[in-house]
Computed example of a mutant assay.
Amino acid sequence: MPHRSVTIPQLHQWKGQGRLITMLTAWDYLLAKLLDRAGIDVILVGDSLGMVALGYDTTLPVTLDQMVHHAQAVRRGVESALLVCDLPFLSYHASPQQALGSAGRLLKEAGVQAVKMEGATPGVLAATELLVQSGIPVLGHVGLTPQMIHSFGSLRQQGKTPETAEKILAGAIALERAGAFGIILEHIPASLAQTISQKLQIPTIGIGAGHDCDGQVLVTADLLGLTTQPPPFAPIYAELGGAIATAVQAYCQDVQQRKFSPLT
């Protein structure tokens, strides 16, 4: 049975207890309801919905209006999990005040409980401080940050050199000091993720970052086998893509051969 109303203080308590945190993404009501009933701790309305729900090649085209729309649908399916939503590309980069306005929309219009921003630039740190001071919890995100794909050149692992590893560690520490309640560590070496997790008082949630984070997150479409090219670090727990295709083909065959018998 799912637990009741996961809170941010609970996540902090779980880190101290060594109780690992579970997190998955959702982009509509039905999926959110299924995840929540299954007992997931945190549901993220990730801008990855741009690819798995909207058909974009990257997360960059996703707009704030689209995130609000999808978060509203997810909210209606969630009773127990903590609901977090990504701020999409260029909805928080201009100024801390822009970030406050964007995050405020997600809380007021969609009922999310926290927002996530990528990176640890001075602008993101300043925005994190302002949002937290304004009562909006912030989840940080360092390592591979997909909104920076054009700067990275590809979605390759980050932090493999001493210099880049030190920069990611410093960014995580700075986000904690700015008031972030937790940090996503994406596609970095397991040893670096372990170091960050040990140094921080707030929870770390890994995705392609080894086993030593305080929790794990995946894009649910990858976990369920619904994507054709999941990232190399994403395990597949069910091959639902193939199962759906088989079911649809069987239905089409039954209809075309007059074998379909609707229930009455």
Rank of each mutant, 00 (worst) to 15 (best):
V84E: 07
E186V: 02
K15W: 12
A238P: 05
H150G: 01
L107F: 13
A32H: 06
H69V: 02
T7S: 14
Q194L: 15
A234N: 04
R105P: 05
Q256S: 11
F181P: 01
I149C: 04
P230I: 00
A53Q: 03
L218S: 03
D212E: 10
Q17N: 15
Q10H: 13
Y56A: 00
P61N: 04
R105T: 09
T204S: 11
A120I: 06
I244Q: 07
T63F: 03
L100M: 14
Q66L: 05
T220W: 05
T121S: 13
L131G: 06
G143K: 00
G179F: 04
V45N: 06
G16L: 09
A238T: 08
E118H: 03
L263V: 08
W27E: 03
L200G: 06
G55Q: 02
A99L: 10
Q97S: 08
S154M: 07
L200A: 12
A221G: 07
L218R: 01
I43C: 10
V124K: 01
A221I: 01
L83A: 09
I149V: 14
H187G: 00
T58I: 07
T220A: 11
D36G: 12
A170H: 15
C252M: 13
L107N: 05
P9Y: 08
D212K: 14
V52K: 01
G18H: 10
P137N: 11
V74D: 04
L155E: 03
Q113T: 08
H141Q: 11
P137M: 13
P230N: 02
L34V: 08
C213Y: 10
L224P: 00
D57T: 13
A245V: 09
A126P: 04
G208E: 02
G119F: 01
L131S: 09
A94S: 14
G182W: 06
E109L: 15
H70V: 06
G123K: 07
V142G: 01
L100S: 06
H141F: 09
A221L: 00
S95V: 09
T164A: 08
W27V: 01
T59K: 00
Q72F: 06
I188V: 15
H12T: 08
T22A: 12
T7N: 14
R37F: 07
I188K: 00
H211A: 15
K108G: 08
T22S: 13
G16Q: 15
S5L: 14
I207A: 03
A114H: 06
I184W: 00
A170L: 15
D65Q: 10
A38T: 10
Q256F: 11
H93P: 04
V78T: 12
A234V: 04
Q201P: 04
P96K: 07
Y251E: 05
T128M: 10
T195C: 12
R37H: 12
I188H: 02
D36E: 15
Q158W: 01
K259R: 14
L30N: 12
D47G: 01
T145K: 00
M51P: 02
L139C: 14
G101L: 09
K199G: 08
Y29N: 07
H3V: 11
A71G: 09
F89Q: 01
S102D: 11
G242K: 07
S48G: 09
V138S: 03
P137R: 06
Q257E: 14
E129D: 11
L139M: 14
